[in-house]
C-alpha cells in the first residue's frame, strides 16, 4: 500500500509483484476490491480498479471498512464464522481444481469457472498481510504480559498454521519420513505447537477475569487463521495458475492475455 495521496490509497501489485502475469494482477485486484464482501459480508467495495494490478481506495472508505473489520475481529463468534467460511472456500476451490485435473480438455472450463470464483474468495484473505490490527494487539498483549518482548514473542508464537507450511509440506511429499531433515521438520512443528499453546495459555491467564479475555481468544484464533490462510492460499493459487496454463495450452490461447472475466464468462 502506497502512502495517502490526495485522499487516495493506492495498492499497486505491478510494483509488489512485478513478475506476475496479467491474470494474477487481475486476481489480486478483484479479490482486494471484494474482500469486505468475502470476509465480512459487507457489500461496499474496497476501492476502484484503475487497471488490473492497481486499485485506488478512498481514505475514508479504507478507514470505515478497516475499523469495522478490526471491531469484528475482536468478536469470537465472528472469528469462528470467518474461519469456517474461509475454510469452506478453500475446500470448494480445491475440489474445483481437482475437477479441473480430472476433466478432459474439452470439459475443463466449467470446473475452471468454479475454481476462478472460488479462488477470488480465497485470495481475498491476502489482506491479512497488512489489514490486521497488529499494533492494537501488541499494545494489548504488552499490557497483559508485561513487556513488549513478551507481547511480540506471544504474537509470533500464535502465527502458526494449523498444518505444515507449504514449504515444509512440499518437502514432506518428496522426502522420506525418516531422513534427518524430515525428523527436524517434524520435531520443530511439535515444538512450535507447544510454544503456541504455551503463549496462548499465558495470554488467557494474563487476561484472566478481565474484559480482554474474549479479545485474547479472538486474536489467537485470527492469528492462527491468518497463517493458515496464507499458506493454503499459496498452494491453491499455484494449482490454479497451473490449471489455467494447461487449459490455455490445450486451447491454443496465450495465458498472458487471459483475464478472470474470460474464465468466469466462458462455460463451453
Amino acid at each position: 500500500m502506497e502512502p495517502v495521496w490526495n485522499g487516495i490509497l493506492t495498492c499497486d501489485y505491478e510494483r509488489t509483484r512485478p513478475d506476475a502475469s496479467p491474470l494474477e494482477w487481475d486476481l489480486y485486484t478483484r479479490s482486494l476490491i471484494s474482500w469486505p464482501a468475502a470476509l465480512m459480508g459487507e457489500p461496499a467495495p474496497y476501492g476502484q480498479l484503475r487497471r488490473p494490478g492497481i486499485v485506488d481506495i478512498s481514505q475514508d472508505v479504507h478507514e470505515i471498512l478497516t475499523r469495522k473489520w478490526h471491531e469484528r475481529l475482536a468478536e469470537p463468534s465472528f472469528v469462528a464464522g470467518l474461519i469456517a467460511d474461509t475454510g469452506k472456500d478453500r475446500s470448494d476451490t480445491s475440489a474445483a481444481l481437482d475437477s479441473c485435473a480430472a476433466a478432459a480438455d474439452s470439459a475443463i472450463l466449467p470446473a475452471l469457472k468454479a475454481a476462478t470464483a472460488g479462488l477470488l474468495r480465497v485470495n481475498a484473505t491476502h489482506i491479512v498481510n497488512w489489514l490486521l490490527p497488529e499494533e492494537h494487539w501488541e499494545t494489548l498483549l504488552t499490557s497483559l504480559l508485561g513487556t513488549r518482548t513478551e507481547a511480540l514473542t506471544c504474537l509470533s508464537a500464535l502465527q502458526l498454521p494449523d498444518t505444515p507450511s507449504h514449504i515444509l509440506a512440499a518437502h514432506g511429499r518428496t522426502a522420506s519420513a525418516g531422513d534427518e531433515a524430515s525428523q527436524f521438520a517434524s520435531s520443530s512443528r511439535i515444538r512450535a505447537r507447544e510454544r503456541r499453546d504455551a503463549w496462548y495459555l499465558a495470554a488467557l491467564l494474563a487476561a484472566g477475569d478481565g474484559p480482554a479475555l474474549s479479545e485474547v481468544r479472538a486474536l489467537a484464533a485470527v492469528l492462527g487463521w491468518a497463517a493458515t490462510s496464507e499458506e493454503r492460499r499459496n498452494e491453491l493459487r499455484t494449482r490454479y495458475l497451473a490449471a489455467v496454463g494447461t487449459w490455455c495450452a490445450a486451447a491454443g490461447l496465450d495465458p498472458g492475455q487471459i483475464t478472470t472475466a474470460d474464465l468466469l464468462g466462458r462455460t463451453s
Partner: peptide
C-alpha cells in the same frame, strides 16, 4: 515480506 510471509511462517515452525 512481513510477519505472515512464507519465510516468517516457516521460521516460526522451525524455531
Amino acid at each position: 515480506g512481513g510477519p505472515l510471509s512464507h519465510a516468517a511462517i516457516v521460521a516460526r515452525e522451525l524455531g
